[in-house]
């Protein structure tokens, strides 16, 4: 398999990077063992049929509400739970170097 094979430590590390998830070495080792067993279980299912449009529709489509402007959460309430805030927004570390 490729570099994303979850049965290998490298694969677990690559998937964790994709998921923006720091794992400690013990977790990564345990997950590798578990993933091997999980994938064997999953691979017991027959391969998917080629035309999966209907299945991918998932639950029946519901009627969406009208697209109208309506009252919403005030900015101060939206920001109330933020770990850090500044200038009416959510504060994060610099995204670009030198900012």
């Amino acid at each position: 398999m490729t570099e994303l094979d979850p049965r290998t430590p490298e694969g677990i590390a690559a998937l964790a990077r994709l998921a923006r998830l720091a794992l400690d070495p013990e977790e990564a080792r345990a997950f590798g063992d578990h993933m091997g067993r999980m994938l064997r279980w999953i691979e017991s299912l027959p391969p998917a049929r080629p035309d999966l449009g209907e299945a991918l529709a998932g639950p029946p489509r519901r009627t969406l509400r009208a697209d109208r402007v309506r009252p919403s959460l005030p900015p101060e309430e939206s920001l109330a739970g933020a770990p850090e805030r500044a200038a009416g927004g959510f504060r994060v570390p610099a995204v670009l170097p030198g900012e």
Binding site: L4, P6, M35, I42, P46, A48, R49, A55
Partner: peptide, 18 residues
């Protein structure tokens, strides 16, 4: 993340949906 990742989506995610 694995079952949705490019290259494995058909083999795993679609298999689950089917």
């Amino acid at each position: 993340t694995f079952v949705l990742s490019s290259g494995f989506y058909e083999a795993y995610y679609l298999r689950g949906q089917d």
